[in-house]
């Protein structure tokens, strides 16, 4: 029972992180029907920006809470700019090319960014300074660390903010309109290229937050840390129904849970395999996912 509860806590933490990354995939897919291959690298860049900024702020003698908050905001801004640059270079000039070309250019961009991180930050793990957030408490035998509390609460705040942005504001309305029909939304005066840029930026900011929190949780970051979580988050987006924001949140949570429980009860060596198997099974048996609408021929 205690073990189950502990896995539940860990699963929610991990699931929240996957949900944040999955949102970037699903939003970009919803608007241009393409996988953003460089998204995992944005997540890694976020993790690195977190290390860099927190180390610097910490050395200036600010208290941990301010370090964390300021680093989170600055790094999210940085990743938004990075993702917009990726969009301008790898996606925008190819808007009318074949899907294969866009995919390849995005893949090239992903390799470029990953190796750029390696060249500027080194091949080895980079540790977060000291123990930023220590300790925890016990609930019915399961240990909940304060870091997990922070991760879950930041995730919830970001998800709520995103929901407000997408469903309650004019910008959100424009985004939804562009996702539904680019030509029609352009006819009513929505600048679709600006909306696409914005979508990339928002997705990147969320992925960046996820990267920082994972870095804090495990204590270090690595230049290739974005690759596997990227695929898992994409699986989460597909599981929830690609293009659907609520679906991505649910999918992320489910994938996190499944991974933690599979690692705990079946085999920890094969934990990475389960997410891939789910991805394949969902695409094969239920390509629309949990919350997805009907999928037309161009998507699957």
């Amino acid at each position: 029972m205690e073990f189950l509860l502990q896995q539940l806590v860990n699963g929610i933490t991990l699931g929240g992180v996957y949900a944040l990354v999955a949102l970037g995939y699903t939003m970009v897919y919803g608007i241009i029907q393409l996988i953003n291959f460089a998204h995992g690298e944005i997540y890694a860049a976020g993790g690195y920006m977190g290390v860099i900024l927190i180390s610097w702020l910490f050395a200036q003698g600010y208290p941990p809470a301010i370090c964390l908050g300021a680093a989170l905001l600055l790094a999210m801004g940085y990743c938004a700019l990075l993702a917009m640059a990726v969009e301008k270079v790898a996606y925008k000039p190819l808007r009318h090319s074949s899907r294969l070309s866009v995919l390849l250019s995005a893949l090239g961009m992903s390799i470029f960014l990953q190796n750029g991180l390696m060249l500027t930050q080194g091949v080895y793990d980079r540790a977060y300074p000291g123990e930023m957030v220590q300790g925890g408490f016990e609930v019915a035998g399961a240990v909940v660390s304060y870091m997990q509390v922070i991760i879950v609460s930041v995730t919830i705040v970001l998800l709520l903010a995103l929901n407000l942005l997408v469903f309650k504001t004019r910008i959100g309305k424009a985004m939804r309109a562009t996702a539904q029909d680019k030509t029609m939304s352009a006819l009513v005066g929505i600048n679709s290229s600006r909306i696409i840029s914005l979508t990339f930026a928002i997705g990147a900011a969320l992925a960046c937050a996820a990267g920082i929190m994972v870095g804090l949780y495990y204590g270090s970051v690595r230049y290739d840390m974005g690759f596997v979580p990227g695929i898992k988050a994409f699986s989460a987006a597909v599981l929830g129904g690609i293009g659907n924001i609520t679906g991505a949140m649910i999918g992320g949570l489910l994938i996190g849970m499944i991974e933690v429980f599979a690692a705990g009860y079946i085999s920890s060596e094969y934990k990475d395999v389960f997410a891939f198997i789910i991805l394949i099974a969902v695409l094969y048996f239920m390509p629309t996912g949990i919350m997805g609408e009907n999928v037309d021929d161009t998507r699957v």
Binding site: P93, L94, L104, S105, G108, I111, Q114
Partner: peptide, 9 residues
């Protein structure tokens, strides 16, 4: 990686 992206353009 960079060449791959630029080649596509």
């Amino acid at each position: 990686g960079g060449v791959m992206a630029v080649m596509m353009i």
